[in-house]
Design a protein around this nucleic acid. Structure first.
Lengths: 339, 339
DNA sequence: GTAGGAGGCACATCCTTATAA
DNA sequence: CTTATAAGGATGTGCCTCCTA
């Protein structure tokens, strides 16, 4: 900046004025300064600028479980879109459900003075964020309800959604419905299991822990576990698959046993192309783009100085009927109005 | 930091020493300082530290076409994994194939003094990066060969891969093979089209521009265009779909016409669950994780001071046979060894 | 309306001092 | 008189705030 000032033969302060497009600079000087900037290949140092101005980095940190999961990716994309036009940059980190990595990412971004966080928590307790919040950093929690923290959050109706899906299977004559879910420590997974149990209770079906499978290291483990469940002759006629990434491997297991048209399946948030399968995968659909956009807007609002009471948004899910969830089960159902 | 020093009753410099874990600090003082840090909820300001030290931000910028595309997401995840342990943070931006947004993202990250970029270029000419490189910022280009820029790059064998896929269709008796591709301005798309043409030329099949479809606004447009192509009675018996996101909509069009078992399809890099479809989608597979990891490692190497000649890595693709590409065409083939 | 200058943001570098072996 | 350990102080990093003309 000093060099630019020297070349343009003005003071440093004037260069600063030109860069920040302040008022009261003549056209002539502005042009001269800009030419010097070009010639010297000068680049404004935002960090120094913000240090002096006493403001934060105009950046936000997004912390997700795994950006390579399409749900996370869609959420991120929506958050990014909210911030693009504002000149706010977005940091990204994945945690793989490890609370320590979540904390490490928060710390790394905090050192870089981000203005806010959008977090899909892997941690069981987000109380550690209180000090960040006290320091003026804003936080929005997504996908899973926050624990020990009163901040804005945006989640899907996990429990209601799961209940909806399992109800659907029950209405189609199923009573032995396997549950395939994420790690039981994951808050959203707990809620989906609760929704599953709600549906069973409402239909007076006994909950059988042997057909509730949770927590898998990878897709192969999901497939293996599903195969074992089907092979166990536990009388399973339907599966409720409580997370998107589990759907494909679970279906592989079903198909591998030749039960494509016998075992009914409902997934919580399937995958692109799930409609092409025969039968198409019936799912409880979420709206990751809306989650991301809402979270981004809530965060941006606070970054702009608004400070309302924290709000928790529960976004509706809905059933998409494609065939796999409508395979009839062995039990007669009185209700003729099957979806 | 001043407050911490005051509370711990040491000099600012000593606090700095503790934070940076320099040698020659006594246990006692170190503990006292750390307590003060805790008590004051102090957070080290990386920006100020790096300003004074004259180093960059220990952050990198990743610029992709669209993070919500699974290919991009997998690449990003691999890049992130390379940098996680090094304490280097990752910025992310999507361009939606708009060169201006690519430049805006580069500029935004450059102002934040990133040490390097990983870029999946939307631009037709990356010459604008020369000034960044001159300023000491490192660049690795991925997915598409760089234009007007001599830097490290990591791409798939787009042309060879496409040729492989179309050869496969030809060997199964097809000669009227529709091409469904990305915008023709996209470098990788051009190469895939070239590969398609290579295969046609080798088999002495005339290239018909009417069955080469490129550039779609969204999935619905792809599906509509494919339906029109099939309805046009152009004699199409096979499709080569040159990009992952185009596969599902193209298949929807084929299935909607009831040609599931008649029109052969090979995709360039399909999607998760493509094996569950009947018939499974035969694809030319890339390795996005390897692309991302390689790019991250190349960048990290330069950030660590190594400065070898730029290398261009062309990663092999391979054919995954699943059924859709093996639907026989109307032409007899002598080669008995069909894959 | 237009420009410049002193000073400081939060930190690290370089130099210096002090004690002990 | 070196060498290792432990701590402090002046100065400067790029830029903006506040004051001045």
């Amino acid at each position: 900046m000093r060099d630019v000032a020297a070349l343009a033969d003005v003071s440093i302060k004037t260069v600063s004025r030109v860069i920040n497009k302040e008022k009261y600079i003549s056209e002539t000087i502005s042009r001269r300064v800009n030419e010097a900037i070009q010639r010297l290949n000068y680049r404004h140092n935002l960090a120094a600028s913000q240090l002096r101005a006493g403001v934060n980095s105009s950046a936000v940190g997004v912390i997700l479980v795994d950006i390579s999961n399409p749900f996370s990716a869609a959420v991120h994309r929506a958050v990014e879109d909210v911030f693009r036009e504002t000149g706010i940059a977005v940091f990204l980190a994945s945690t793989d459900e490890e609370a320590d990595r979540e904390k490490a990412a928060v710390h790394a971004f905090s050192k870089r003075r981000v203005d806010g966080f959008v977090i899909m928590p892997a941690s069981h307790d987000q109380g550690y964020l209180l000090s960040e919040i006290a320091a003026g950093t804003h936080v929005v929690i997504i996908d899973r309800p926050p624990a020990y923290l009163n901040v804005d959050f945006v989640v899907s109706e996990n429990r209601k959604g799961a209940r909806l899906g399992v109800d659907h299977l029950i209405r189609h004559g199923h009573r032995r419905i396997g549950f395939i879910g994420d790690w039981p420590t994951v808050a959203s997974s707990q809620l989906r299991l609760a929704g599953y149990e709600d549906a069973l209770a409402a239909a007076e079906i006994e909950r059988d822990p042997r057909i509730i499978l949770q927590g898998f290291a990878d897709a192969a483990a999901v497939q293996q576990a599903t195969e074992n469940l089907l092979a166990a002759d536990a009388g399973i006629t339907a599966l409720f698959v409580a997370q998107n990434a589990l759907c494909a491997p679970a279906m592989r297991a079903v198909f591998a046993r030749g039960k494509r048209k016998e075992i009914a399946i409902v997934g919580f948030d399937g995958f692109d192309g799930a409609d092409l399968i025969e039968p198409g995968l019936t799912v409880i659909a979420q709206d990751p783009t809306l989650i991301g956009r809402t979270a981004g807007e809530l965060l941006l609002r606070r970054m702009n100085g608004e400070n309302p009471e924290p709000t928790g948004q529960m976004l509706d899910t809905h059933l998409i009927v494609r065939g796999s969830g409508e395979i009839p089960g062995p039990f007669r159902v009185k209700d003729a109005s099957l979806a």
